[in-house]
Design a protein around this nucleic acid. Structure first.
Lengths: 349, 349
DNA sequence: TTTTTTTACGCAATCGTTCCCGGTAACCGG
DNA sequence: CCGGTTACCGGGAACGATTGCGTAAAAAAA
């Protein structure tokens, strides 16, 4: 399984030069005569020479590759974000190594270990739903690994972060529901410890409070694995609709939770929004094709990936240690469709 | 931005041994005494030594990474396939470098160039819709690069391939439509040159022929970019519904085409399946939530990714040149829902 | 005790590049 | 003609790991 072999040595030998000269000629050094440069360049072109990136990595002690850890690739939000990551990385000559935690702490730790042992230059992470202990990230960060968090961030680690205004997204969505006549609004959230859960629930509660609605803790449900398993969504939805006070609307605080909730509501033969209104965070490409057309809080996933990667590459390529970090907060996009419209305003598609 | 530095030399120095001895001790060579081994192993463990994969790659002339080229990551089919690829690659200690052609021939060629210059050990490809000239793949393959094609394959190159039975999928879907009373079935396909287009259209035509329905060429429409741009879908759908004979059902032969067609039909206020029935290839996670619940021909994307990766790794790690190749053909899954049900059998969800 | 065989380790080359030192011309001013 | 630039180029040591070969000391055989 040999594959090509043309190295700087081959050029040197063929042209009767030393490897140093060839190397310098290729890098356009001033101490090489124009004629020699031309000679080398032309010959290199002719035999289709390409510098061996592995040898370069070894020499420069950098791999020009960045690691990415997300919960799952086959999720609209993350695949769009990866799209953004990949595009910026490519522009800067980096490649991207992706791994999936599937919301599991153990898998996350293993992949983290694996990635660092593969000598990556930096890391982009959206933490797993299960993760409550951040010491593995912390230790790595303290040892000097550039890390950028996005979406699900960690306050305990001081580095660049990229998020949407989760508070605002949840606040506005909740406000919309209230202003459209929904009175009993339940929330289905991810794991309680997650940054996005905290921020989004805060927005939800604030909107209720601002409209003089008392927050009912039994109206807030958590899914440990972020709805990765439909059973947990079924569990909490069942609890909600079987409770003494049935909600008339649900705010779903995660991609999988939004479609999952709709799935369960449909299975239980509830009319949405007739019986229960629904709005949720989602980056699904087909949200408007869904029945009923889904009201969503959409994150600029592609852009988030781009920004995170830009920040990471800045970190990696910075000459002196970076001490001041920023948290980029982008605006979510709220799209109201039938699933969150009040019965009296409801129009058939 | 220094990050760790513990090498075999550090161990050697600390223990007063030579690097060769340390290396051999770590690899459990028989020529090292048990005591020395223990010493080295324990110290390595203590200072958290990990072999530098880049140095290894240089020495062994292999990078343990595989390249993947797909049209876009943020597409259910491909993200599921990548999921499968990633899982097998990870199990075998490979990492995966992903790039997107976005159906463009030029981007595909550039990425191919980039990937090979990054010294990958092998390649998994689903070719871009635009690609009519396969010489870049051919040349690479002839120079010894292991390649596995999946989904959109190239007959001209003799290597492992992984596909679904596209003929069967299209045949059965068409047959279903016919048997349910649809008479004028149009097909919307990808670029004409694509393997999946050829196979799927062949299945479509065969089903029509087997039911004594004449194939009408004006009923077959092509989208150069596989529906990546909604305009091209709009264009062909418009042509179909404005034609002298309006189809009463549409078979969409690609992920983006299926949802795209539905989008356009809805925009044009057509009732599906009342006015026009619809079935298509799709791996969308939300197909049953869509209005109307979408009938789909689903590919085992994850499994395809797994198999392709398995085959590729076999190729890479084979001692002697592989000369006999196989084309794995998996069964598509046909899921019939309301969008393809005849009016008279149609039941409201 | 001497010779042979093991045992256990070190030296140095290698993978493809870069880059620090030199070194050798040619050239120039005085 | 000589010292000093300048322009060009080569040698060889890295980067981190593996590995063939050589060899000292210890163990076994004679």
């Amino acid at each position: 399984m040999k594959f090509e072999a043309v190295t700087i040595k081959d050029i040197a030998k063929a042209l009767g030069l030393s490897t140093s000269t060839v190397s310098r000629a290729l890098r356009d050094s001033y101490e090489i005569s124009p004629e020699t440069k031309k000679l080398v360049l032309e010959y290199a072109e002719k035999i289709n020479y390409h510098p061996n990136p592995i040898a370069l990595s070894l020499k420069e002690r950098r791999s020009r590759s960045i690691g990415v850890i997300v919960s799952e690739i086959a999720n609209s939000f993350f695949s769009q974000a990866i799209d953004g990551i990949e595009s910026i990385a490519y522009k800067n000559g980096y490649n991207v190594i992706i791994s999936q935690s599937r919301e599991s702490f153990d898998r996350e730790a293993i992949h983290l270990q694996y990635l660092t042992s593969r000598s990556i230059d930096g890391l982009i992470v959206s933490v797993a739903a299960e993760t409550k202990d951040f010491s593995h990230f912390k230790e790595l960060h303290e040892r000097g690994m550039p890390i950028v968090f996005f979406d699900r961030i960690i306050n305990e680690i001081n580095t660049h972060k990229v998020i949407v205004d989760n508070y605002l997204g949840a606040y506005d969505a909740t406000r919309y529901l209230i202003e459209n006549g929904f009175k009993h609004i339940a929330a289905i959230a991810n794991n309680e410890i997650l940054s996005i859960t905290r921020d989004r629930l805060a927005g939800y509660k604030a909107a209720l409070a601002d409209h003089n609605i008392k927050t009912d803790d039994s109206f807030i449900k958590y899914c440990e694995h972020g709805g990765l398993r439909l059973e947990e969504v079924e569990q909490v939805v069942t609890e909600l609709v079987d409770g003494e006070i049935k909600p008339d609307a649900i705010l779903a605080l995660g991609d999988k939770l939004t479609t999952g909730t709709l799935r369960i509501l449909k299975a239980k033969k509830f009319n949405v929004p007739g019986d229960i209104g629904l709005i949720g965070f989602s980056n699904s490409e087909t949200s408007e094709l869904i029945e009923p057309p889904l009201s969503i809080i959409k994150q600029p996933a592609f852009e988030m990936g781009e920004i995170a990667t830009d920040l990471l590459i800045q970190l990696i390529e910075s000459k002196r240690p970076v001490t001041s970090f920023e948290t980029k907060k982008l605006a979510p996009q709220i799209i109201i469709r039938e699933s969150a419209k009040n019965k009296k305003n409801y129009v058939e598609f």
